[in-house]
Every structure is written in C-alpha cells, then in structure tokens.
Write a protein that binds this DNA or RNA. Structure first.
Lengths: 246, 246
DNA sequence: CAGTGGTCTAGACCACTCG
DNA sequence: GAGTGGTCTAGACCACTGT
C-alpha cells in the first residue's frame, strides 16, 4: 500500500497538503520566536516522525523555506533559523509602457536622440568595450497622459543589438525591444534621490531644483554588458512601491 | 535496483545534479528565445523521457523555475514561458545599524523624541486603531561616522510592543527591537524622492532644498499593523542598490 | 477519454560533520 | 559511527483541462 491512508483529520474543511502543514508549522514557530535567530531547528527526520509524512515531503517544505530565506541549512550539521532582519522584498521593475497602460493611461514617447557615437571612457568601461568604439545612444522622454514621467538616457552595446537604431521607439520601448533581442538575465541598479541635469529638467518640464528619483541600471548577460540606462523621474510624480512577504 | 545506473556522461568533469541539468536546459532555452513569452513548453513527461530521469526530478526543476517567475504552469493545460519583462529583483532592506557596521563604520543614534501620544486620524488609520488612542512615537537620527544618514520618524502600535518606550534606542535600533518582539511578517513600502521637512533638514544638517530619498514603510503581522516609519536619507549620502538575477 | 500538472511515498545512496 | 542534509527513483492517486 504505497498510498498512505488519509484517516487523519483535516477532512472537515480544507485537506491542506502535508508539505504546506509542515511549512506552516515552521513558519509560525519562527514568527512566534520559538527558534530565535541562529537556533537549531528540528531535523528532517524529526519532522518526518512528528508529521508522519515521508522525508521528501518534509524536504520540500524545508527547501522552500530556505529559498525564501527564512532558514539556513548546512549539510552534516542541521537547519537553523535565519536572520529575519535581512528580509528582502521583491521590487518588480516593469516596462514603463506596460505600467502606464495597466493604470489605464496613455503612454507616449518623445525621441530626442537616437544615433551612434564614439564611446567615452566612462561609457566604454561600463559597457566593456574600447574607448572610442561605436555605441548606440538614445535619449527620450516618456509621458503618462501627456505628463512627462521619465527621462531615459541609454547607451547600448552594438554587439548585442545591432539593429537597435532602426527601431521606432515611439512604438516600442527600448526595454521592450532589448528584452526581445536578449532577454535580460542579470542587472544591477541603484536608486537615489538627486537633482536633474539642466537638460533633464528642461525635458521633464521641471525646475532645476526639483528632486528626482534617479535609477541607474546596467544590464548584462553572461558577463557581456548589454546596456546602461539612467532613468530620471520627477519626485513629485513617481514612486516605487513594493512588499515584503516572507 | 532502485538506483539508476550512472553510465551517462558527465563523469569527466562535474557530476551536475540531474535536476540542475533540466533546469539549465529550460533556462538557457528561455534565454535563447526558444520559447517566446506565452509559448507552450515541454511537459513534465517529455522532460522525463528526454533526460531519462524520474518525474520528481523534473518536477523539482520546473517548480523552482516557477518560483523564480520564469514560467507559468496551469494544471490540466501545461507549462508556459512567462513574461520575462516582469523580472523582479530582491531589494534587501537591512537594519541600518548592521548595514553601517558591515561597512566597517561607526553607528550612532541621536534620540530626539520617545513618548506616548494621542493618535492623529492619519496615524490611527494606518495603525488600525482608534483616533485619539495611545501610540508610541519616536524620532531619531542615525549617524554613520558622525555624518547624519537617516532621520527615522516612527509610530508604533502599543498592543504589539508594550515595552517599546523603555528600550534604549542608542543601543538597539527600533527595527531590531521590533523584530525581536514580533518578527515582521509583512510590510509595504514606497520609495520616492522629495524634500525634507524643515525639522528633518535641520536634524540631517541639510539645506531645505536638498533632495532626499524618502522611504515610507508600514509593517503588519497577520493583518495587525505594528508600525509605520518615515525614513529620510540625504540624496547625496545614500543610495539603494540591488540586483536582478533571474 | 488521454494528457497535464500537484502531490505523496518508501526506500535508497551520497557527502558532510561531529564526537 | 551516528546524525545531518542533498539528491534520486519508480511508482501512485488526485484534480483539472481539453476533445
């Protein structure tokens, strides 16, 4: 009889999956401070005995908690409660076009620059190419219902997207196009508050002393830099938001 | 013979785990555009046949990709390539004290307020309590090597941390203390650029027109609000950074 | 109905760490 | 050697979707 008899409770309401029960037990124990940070938690075999389930089931529950960063496991040693203070959230950065449409608003892009240039030392370094070699450079402003929302200043490695300049960016955002050409596999970003450059202030129709949210993002794939972008948002018109949900 | 014979390759170099191989196959296929967004991907049974592994192994690989948001699965239908453009990053917000120490710098907190107050309507709403009932209110500035780095204005629901005001916040940060009392299970935040209030500018030793990164974070547990905090950082001295790594 | 994913089991071998 | 996690298998039952 490979299938275990389902005599045990949980028939009245929801027949919660066993691995979910194990997971919940551990999660609630952590929330209740039953295993303070760094404490040794029950071993897999203990959980197997306690819940009368197979080890695979326990393993799944525990592995998922590990993936969520709630516990640390060390082979040969045991399972430990993780630093709950290092909780991390998922900050989803969507394509601005989609984001605006999903709010039910209109999106429009104004192209101010789209040409090939010689890479400055700073740009070349970050794109992993030779100073003075060709790069693609675009500068545009994105509008939400005709209000300027983002100034996008972007350099692209021609090796990764040779046809970049032939794209009509009033129809497809650079992000979207680059995702088609090379799904972005790794990226780094920084988020800070700062003042717009003179040009940015003008393009965004801002006074030069209005604070902006500045996101600098560089994207690469397998160690090959694809693009770097500086995204400037008027502080009064844009905010990032997200959730923690450990 | 329950154990499968390990005749097949991968003996010369690393004996990569089968589930890793399956996962890598799918991941690289997605990167190469083999399955555009929304496309039907191989079923579990196909992968079982192709890789000559058990279904559990395939399931694990596929389930992990799903957790990473790279694929969508629908019972009874199949597995589909997810929208790669909605890649999300993990933004880890650590305790500022730890963050500063990990940079090898000194942390110091200056307490400007720590008392009980009657909740204003705005605060009461966000803390889920009655207007006019008691709340704890703290205001402090955190220094990194004696440079003001963050102004923390915080309201706490007394029901969740009755002893909050008896804590010596020059020794323990509110975040740290609240994490001990009630590990934060859910939180929401917004990040924006803005100007400091007059008081904040003074506390941070800023001109009132210097842009700041403002994080507003509210924390709850099981639907019960614990605390709301407004964290103001001088734009010139602080930045958030993170990575995408799908 | 056949095909899909969702879950579970009872065992197994391995690598690792500790006393 | 005993205990831990890391991984795998061959089968199974289920719920769900299509035709």
């Amino acid at each position: 009889m490979p299938r275990k008899d389902t005599t045990t409770a949980a028939r009245t309401s929801l027949p919660t999956a066993p691995y979910v029960r194990v997971k919940r037990f551990l999660k609630e124990g952590l929330a209740a401070g039953r295993w303070p940070t760094g404490t040794l938690m029950p071993s897999e075999s203990e959980l197997v005995a306690q819940f009368e389930v197979s080890r695979m089931t326990v393993t799944r529950a525990v592995r998922e908690l590990q993936a969520e960063g709630l516990i640390d496991r060390v082979q040969g040693i045991g399972t430990f409660a993780a630093q709950l203070s290092r909780v991390s959230s998922t900050l989803t950065i969507r394509d601005l076009h989609e984001e605006i449409l999903s709010r039910g608003h209109r999106h429009r892009a104004e192209i101010h620059l789209a040409k090939r240039e010689r890479a400055s030392a700073a740009v070349a370094t970050r794109l992993g190419i030779q100073t003075g070699s060709t790069v693609f450079h675009t500068l545009m402003v994105h509008f939400e219902n005709d209000v300027p929302l983002q100034c996008e200043d972007r350099y692209v490695n021609p090796a990764c997207a040779p046809d970049y300049l032939s794209v009509d960016f009033t129809q497809v955002t650079p992000t979207n196009y680059l995702l088609q050409v090379a799904p972005l596999w790794e990226a780094q970003y920084s988020i800070e508050a700062g003042l717009p450059s003179e040009q940015e202030a003008q393009l965004l129709r801002l006074r030069h002393d209005e604070p902006c949210l500045v996101i600098v993002r560089s994207t690469e794939r397998g160690g090959v830099p694809i693009t770097i972008a500086r995204l400037v948002h008027p502080g009064s018109r844009y905010m990032l938001s997200g959730q923690f949900k450990p």
